[in-house]
Amino acid sequence: MPFFQRKHYTSEATDFINDLKKQRPTLDAEQRAGRALLWDKKVDRDAWSDYDAGEIKQKPYVYQTDAS
């Protein structure tokens, strides 16, 4: 047995998450559904390449006027 090992220790955060999952068994599925709304999307590479090709480069000093 290692010298610094604690037997059966769980942090308060782990206890909270485990209790929350016991109270709401559908929590994992709800999180996956929420993630799918914003993040898990198929990327259209052709559309992105067209977007990048049409981008206009910004001037280095945006807030400086040309008036002398």
Rank of each mutant, 00 (worst) to 15 (best):
F4A: 14
F4M: 13
K7R: 12
H8S: 13
H8Q: 15
Y9Q: 14
T10C: 03
T10L: 06
T10S: 09
S11A: 13
E12H: 03
E12G: 00
T14S: 12
T14F: 05
D15C: 07
D15F: 03
F16S: 08
F16A: 11
F16E: 07
I17A: 09
N18C: 05
D19M: 11
D19F: 09
L20N: 12
L20M: 15
K21Q: 14
K21G: 00
K22F: 03
K22C: 06
Q23F: 09
R24M: 13
P25T: 01
P25G: 06
P25H: 05
P25A: 08
T26A: 14
T26W: 09
L27M: 15
D28E: 13
D28W: 01
D28L: 08
D28T: 12
A29I: 12
A29S: 15
E30H: 08
E30G: 05
Q31W: 11
R32L: 12
A33H: 09
A33F: 10
A33P: 01
A33Y: 09
A33V: 10
R35E: 06
R35W: 08
L37M: 14
L37G: 09
L38N: 11
L38D: 07
W39A: 02
W39G: 01
K41Q: 12
K41P: 01
K42M: 04
V43K: 07
V43Q: 02
D44C: 10
D44N: 15
D44G: 02
R45Y: 07
D46Y: 05
D46M: 03
A47T: 10
A47D: 08
A47H: 08
S49N: 09
D50A: 13
D50F: 05
D50E: 09
Y51E: 00
D52T: 04
D52Q: 06
D52C: 04
D52S: 01
A53S: 05
A53F: 02
G54S: 04
G54P: 02
E55Q: 10
E55G: 01
K57Q: 07
K57F: 07
K57M: 07
K59L: 02
K59I: 00
Y61G: 04
Y61Q: 00
Y61W: 07
V62G: 02
Y63E: 03
Q64Y: 05
Q64A: 04
T65E: 06
D66N: 08
D66H: 01
D66K: 04
A67F: 08
A67K: 13
S68C: 02
S68T: 00
S68F: 00
